[in-house]
Simulated assay, not measured.
Amino acid sequence: MIKSSKIVVMGGSWGGLQASLSVLKELPATYPIPIVLVLHRLRNFEGSLPELYDSKTLLKAVEVDEKEEALPGHVYLAPSNYHVLLEKDQTFSLDDSELENYSRPAIDVTFTSAADVYGSNTIGILLSGASRDGSAGLKYISDRGGTVVVQDPAEAELDTMPLAAIDQVPDGEIMNLEQIQAYLLSLT
């Protein structure tokens, strides 16, 4: 497959699972941009997130694996207890270093590494959540000319994460889940 010149990085915490499913459910299996999803979850959680996303979306859902290439038509899920980074060759690396924002995986880590690789072709989306994780990463994306989208805090199950993002990047796009989905569909 041809490597994508763009990347969508999406993060969330409390309420982020349902929000991300709502956003991703209508994207076609041939979606031209890889999507990386970082959700806060218990560190030793051995769940079946790929199966859940496979059953609810048309995208191929996989848990990130070391040195795997970021390909279109996929949603890459951050594994429990690992930070996910993107490398210059558009592959993933997993890191088990210290917690950031009390989390591993941390959204900021993925957002920052994506912006380092994809620059202005990075699309960062922050959903519902109970911490400030992701807001610094969105600012980093914005500072490199990328696109920043924040779930409307009025719609979020928990508004802490979206409000922190708006505080960090006041000129970011604020959208409800339906608008985020429409925006992503418009990129096809």
Rank of each mutant, 00 (worst) to 15 (best):
S4A: 13
I7H: 00
I7P: 04
V8G: 12
G11S: 12
S13Y: 03
S13V: 01
W14P: 05
W14S: 11
W14K: 12
G15L: 07
G15V: 03
G15N: 02
G15A: 08
G15C: 03
G16Y: 11
L17D: 01
Q18Y: 09
Q18M: 10
A19Q: 08
L21G: 07
L24H: 08
K25Q: 10
E26P: 14
L27V: 05
P28K: 09
A29I: 08
T30P: 09
Y31P: 14
Y31S: 10
Y31N: 15
Y31C: 07
P32Y: 04
P34G: 15
I35F: 09
L37N: 08
L37R: 10
L42P: 11
L42W: 15
R43M: 15
R43D: 15
N44F: 15
F45T: 08
F45C: 14
G47N: 01
G47Q: 01
S48M: 13
S48L: 14
S48E: 08
P50L: 05
E51Q: 08
L52G: 00
Y53S: 00
L58D: 11
L59M: 00
L59C: 00
E63V: 03
V64K: 14
V64F: 07
E66F: 08
E66I: 05
K67V: 06
E68C: 04
E69C: 09
E69I: 11
A70P: 05
A70M: 12
G73S: 07
G73Q: 07
H74L: 04
V75M: 07
L77F: 06
S80I: 09
S80W: 05
N81V: 02
Y82S: 11
Y82R: 15
L86F: 07
E87W: 00
E87N: 13
D89I: 04
Q90T: 15
T91A: 06
S93F: 06
S93P: 01
D95P: 03
D96H: 06
S97L: 05
E98M: 00
E98P: 00
N101M: 03
N101C: 07
N101F: 15
R104P: 02
P105I: 01
A106I: 00
I107M: 03
I107Y: 10
V109G: 04
T110G: 08
T110H: 02
F111T: 00
T112E: 12
T112Q: 14
S113M: 12
A114T: 08
A114V: 11
A114W: 13
A114D: 03
D116C: 03
D116F: 09
V117W: 00
V117K: 11
Y118A: 10
Y118C: 13
G119Y: 11
G119V: 04
G119M: 10
S120K: 04
S120D: 15
N121V: 04
I123T: 08
I125Q: 13
I125W: 11
L127A: 03
S128L: 09
G129I: 03
A130D: 14
S131G: 13
G134T: 06
A136Y: 14
A136N: 12
G137S: 07
G137Q: 06
L138E: 01
K139G: 02
Y140R: 00
I141N: 10
S142C: 14
R144I: 01
R144A: 07
R144K: 15
G145H: 04
G146V: 04
V148D: 12
V149R: 06
